[in-house]
């Protein structure tokens, strides 16, 4: 099981967090942790999502990127290295 951290920025819109969690579950990723906060000045949410799966992380990155309110999705490779060390 590979573990990853995704750093996601999103517009602070209705149910954006639910959408991300639903996609992660449906695409075969176990959610190990989540931290989310909103910058109320620019209405941008920052979400750190810890997931694990046998599937390639690109699958999840592409699917989250398709969500309408998502601004960016990045895999935090430092976290991956720490987990595998």
């Amino acid at each position: 099981m590979n573990r990853y951290q995704l750093n996601i920025t999103a517009d602070d819109k209705q149910v954006v967090l639910e959408r991300i969690l639903q996609v992660a579950r449906y695409r075969g990723f176990l959610i190990n942790g989540i931290h989310a906060q909103v910058n109320t000045k620019n209405s941008v949410g920052i979400i750190e999502l810890l997931v694990s799966s046998e599937r390639p992380i690109e699958l999840l990155v592409d699917q989250i990127n398709k969500l309408i309110d998502i601004k960016s999705v990045k895999v935090d490779n430092t976290v991956m290295q720490l987990e595998s060390a």
Partner: peptide
């Protein structure tokens, strides 16, 4: 229905 729509729409609004 907003919650139900997440898995079966491209996007949804309430």
């Amino acid at each position: 229905v907003f919650g139900l729509s997440l898995a079966c729409t491209k996007h949804s609004f309430q």
